[in-house]
Design a protein around this nucleic acid. Sequence first.
DNA 1: GTATTACGTCAGACTTGTTGACTTTCCAAC
DNA 2: GTTGGAAAGTCAACAAGTCTGACGTAATAC
Lengths: 170, 170
Amino acid sequence: MQDKVGAAPAGGENLLFLTDDQLRRGIEAMFFAYRAFTADPDMILTELDYGRAHHRAIHFINREPGLTVTALLDVLGVTKQSLNRVLRTLIEDGLVESRIGRRDRRERQLYLTEKGALLERRLSEAQRARMRAAYRAAGPQAVAGFRQVLEAMMDQETLRQYHALREMPE
Amino acid sequence: MQDKVGAAPAGGENLLFLTDDQLRRGIEAMFFAYRAFTADPDMILTELDYGRAHHRAIHFINREPGLTVTALLDVLGVTKQSLNRVLRTLIEDGLVESRIGRRDRRERQLYLTEKGALLERRLSEAQRARMRAAYRAAGPQAVAGFRQVLEAMMDQETLRQYHALREMPE
DNA sequence: GTATTACGTCAGACTTGTTGACTTTCCAAC
DNA sequence: GTTGGAAAGTCAACAAGTCTGACGTAATAC
């Protein structure tokens, strides 16, 4: 039951010889790792009667303070009706502030309040702690490979959303 | 905006120096990659009025034909009531067969029918195609690192579920 | 002045998760 | 062998979070 990923036996140029079995293990690793990956924040969120949707909103608002509802909708890839409910509770609970856009008064710019920033740190630190431990256990070369494969797995649209926040104007 | 993961500057033994920024990129990569990862099967499933839960059940039944409902519950990490509904529709639709356990008549052993196996292949081939492309694009060393980091991310319980299917008796 | 955009909301449906109560089956202690 | 508890599975009702569709309001664009 070895698990080597080697060059093609006959010698296709840069192609790899990949058995269905090897691929299946990658698929299962993604499934279980993702579950572990979300476990820590999920526990914190459940305590507070929030869900993953709240976490995602908080994460990206923290990432790019002042981003608009439409921009947030784009990265999250959900409908506005769905996001709206989440956003409403976050605003009611005083974690997120919605300010009228400065350039365009139709827009709503979203910011974390102090309370929101506090929860963000609590959630992201839990997630970072796990990621940090995994990175340290696996080593720098593995980390580079990890990122390469994940990015290679994204399609054009996802890749665009993934990079969008780094290229935001202002 | 370099993204190196280097050794600690002061020189802790095997520790890596990891900024919050590097970790955050890993976290976001997981988020977006997982979404891309599930996109292909999700499309097929939507056509057929199934969801991800159906896919997961089909995957693991195919993986270990004859496994019991309890064993499936364990790997999936959901309540039996939740699984039951999914399982019922799969049985009604003739994709899964539930046979009374041979040793213990309380148990139900689960098998894919031919129709079920057909859908399984369709779903898993879509997912494998993406994984294969990502693996090939990233190269064998990256693949090894990818797997290492994912496995290092799992906690004990998840790791147990991850390995459970490989060590099943019979 | 009209069309478009950004945002919010109401209504209704579906998937998938939950808890609680129930039946059938097994096993072990009496 | 009977009984009583534990295990496996099923049924019912509810909650969260997603979706689509329709509509309203305000601000901007043409």
